[in-house]
Design a binder for these strands. Structure first.
Lengths: 112, 112
DNA sequence: AAATCATATTCGAATATTCTTATATCAAAT
DNA sequence: ATTTGATATAAGAATATTCGAATATGATTT
């Protein structure tokens, strides 16, 4: 099983790796919101919120339903996003390996 | 339950949101490796690998055990990283909301 | 102590991201 | 048709990230 990295994994991770965008996503998990709603909750400008929503939409993390002049944004892959957030919330203790022998480079007794 | 974003969530997400770094982490999940090992697997320069390892280490995603002149790197929060990767691997279908009414802005009948 | 192997750091250029300002689009109401 | 409310886009400055080249550090061997 070779380690395959899909390009869109990077896209998803990049999209979430910004405070405002992560906050937007968290807010949307609590319920569909239009741009003005989000603008009222977060301290960013309307244009900036809109730009971030475009990034999230390109990453297929959010989508919207048009309602008149409004666009009601929602998280279109809630399981993925909630799963990621849950993992981040469950801060686990770090493993410490005191001694590790990772490879046999430069060892006389290196078998094979 | 307010939506709290921890700074280190962003740090973790940012660290993983780079092809080389994500690849490094995936390789390390398969077993501890020193810098030269990683250098032999990935197409980046030694200096660059080292730089990326520093980023991952600052995010507390990897750590190393010194073994002579070598540094054997390993993923120090494997549950977190494997969890994230598993979520990314399980591509889930996107939800489509045809009609959404996200807020009662500008509606006569808007109750409360 | 000099040479060598393994790894890290510094510097700087190239590139990408972010945010602000201004403007454009588009639907609904007047 | 004009205005208004809601949202998007364009342009550009400010900032951050990335990576190569050169060099430094530190452990091991000779």
């Amino acid at each position: 099983m070779t380690a395959i990295i899909e390009n869109y994994w990077i896209t998803i991770l990049k999209s979430l790796a910004h405070p405002t965008r992560l906050q937007i996503v968290i807010e949307l998990l609590n319920g569909t919101k239009c741009v003005t709603d989000i603008h009222e909750i977060l301290p960013s400008s309307q244009a900036n919120i809109s730009q971030h929503l475009t990034v999230l939409r390109n990453a297929r993390i959010v989508d919207f339903a048009q309602d008149g002049a409004q666009r009601c944004y929602y998280v279109c892959r809630p399981e993925l996003i909630e799963g990621l957030l849950n993992l981040l919330r469950n801060e686990q203790p770090e493993i410490v390996q005191k001694k590790a022998q990772c490879c046999l480079r430069n060892r006389e007794d290196g078998a094979e």
